[in-house]
Design a protein around this nucleic acid. Structure first.
Lengths: 228, 228
DNA sequence: AGAAATAGACCGACGGTCGGTTTGTTTCAA
DNA sequence: TTGAAACAAACCGACCGTCGGTCTATTTCT
């Protein structure tokens, strides 16, 4: 095979690119290291020069994904012109915008993520996203608690729990997508909408915020996401 | 090898027994099918006569675990002499009792469950437990909402979210155990205690219950669990 | 020169298959 | 009633293909 040398950064990013695509397309367990290196035009030796294991490659995929997410959301979450609740809402709004932008890929992602052969993928990504989000939200809650705009005696624990709730929404997004694909468009949109509202209410109540102060969704979001 | 024939139920339960022990002891991925059949004194052919795959064995382990849990907790959760909040508290109390009873094994379980080679194990067990708990809690919330003793407009979603929060507590239990093993006994107990209280508060607020109406923990529980 | 990067043949372990054997039960003719 | 033939289910274990990972040799760049 032709030997082409590239900078380590480029090369490892290429590998992560291929891996990400293949993992989401065919599943983590169904993707072999050989698949990855074939796609990346690289030898096995070279692969193991960059990653100590297939598992390490998965971790790299997950952390890069989380980092990109962080880069998008951090500015919103740290906007000094907003109070804590405003930042929280900004974070959610940004998250929604991201979801809409990436809706087509995201649909595949969800379909992939909940397959049994992808528990590792799912878990790692969840972990990585949690790791970058936790400090952000905890900081927000801490500030809000000091400001008195919300009530979170234990910001770390509260942040953790708020973020844990994401999962239930993610699961419902998946269910809604399936329902949508099955033809029940209105039912899917209603379900997704309802759950997101409930998620918002859960957060308001938990943080002792006034009703409707958290905008977890906006009119038409569920539909727009499903139809994207 | 000596050929011994047993009733299918006995045999498959033996296999699940061995698998459960080995999975928790050495990890799911580190346990081979050969390990299981060696322990169970059975041939490969016989194994695949009972389970179509190693994955299927894992599922059997998880569902049996969940069923046993259900059998313990269902009576408490459906006690007609209690109102919805009372049932919820009974459920939590029962859960604590189970945790204390099984503390020694549970410690191993936690240590195993959070290792990277056990994501599949973790995931399947979580899924199975969720599946049996969800109807129980949803029913409770529905009744409580009708009774007016709590406020849960969407019982299914609320139940899901309450249960999702378990995860954060499980993770903290694990962290506390590590801390305990590292010698920081008081720190570990305090951390666990604090989080459980926060969990209780989260539920109270989410369901619009009066303060301290949920007894998520009791004095000395954290310590007793850690020291068991 | 030598360190980093690449190639690809090779290895061992593992999940799973397959053809065949044993055991117990049912059927039915003598 | 008996017992042997037929059948189904449980069981055996050698074998196979795949896959993650290793190793040695080679190339490229500084």
């Amino acid at each position: 095979m032709v030997r082409t040398k590239k900078s380590p950064e480029v090369r490892s990013n290429e590998l992560i690119d291929c891996a990400e695509r293949l993992f989401f397309q065919h599943g983590y367990e169904n993707t072999t290291v050989n698949d990855v290196i074939r796609e990346a035009n690289l030898s096995k030796g070279a692969f193991y020069h960059y990653f100590v294991s297939k598992e390490a490659l998965l971790e790299a995929v997950a952390t890069r994904l989380a980092q990109r997410n962080l880069k998008e959301l951090q500015p919103l979450a740290e906007d000094p012109s907003l109070d804590a609740v405003g930042q929280l809402n900004a974070l959610f709004a940004g998250s929604r915008r991201l979801k809409l932008d990436m809706a087509p890929q995201l649909k595949n992602t969800f379909n992939a993520l909940f397959k049994p052969e992808n528990v590792a993928l799912y878990h790692r990504i969840d972990e990585a996203l949690l790791a970058v989000s936790l400090p952000l939200v905890a900081q927000m809650l801490r500030r809000g608690h000091q400001e008195g705009s919300l009530d979170a005696p234990d910001p770390e624990a509260a942040a953790m729990m708020l973020l844990e709730l994401r999962l239930s929404v993610a699961k419902v997004m998946h269910k809604a997508l399936q329902r949508y694909d099955a033809g029940d468009i209105d039912g899917a949109a209603a379900m997704l909408d309802g759950w997101m509202r409930t998620y918002g209410i859960a957060i308001e109540r938990f943080l002792k915020l006034p009703e409707r102060s958290i905008e977890m969704t906006e009119p038409g979001f569920a539909r727009a996401f499903l139809e994207a």
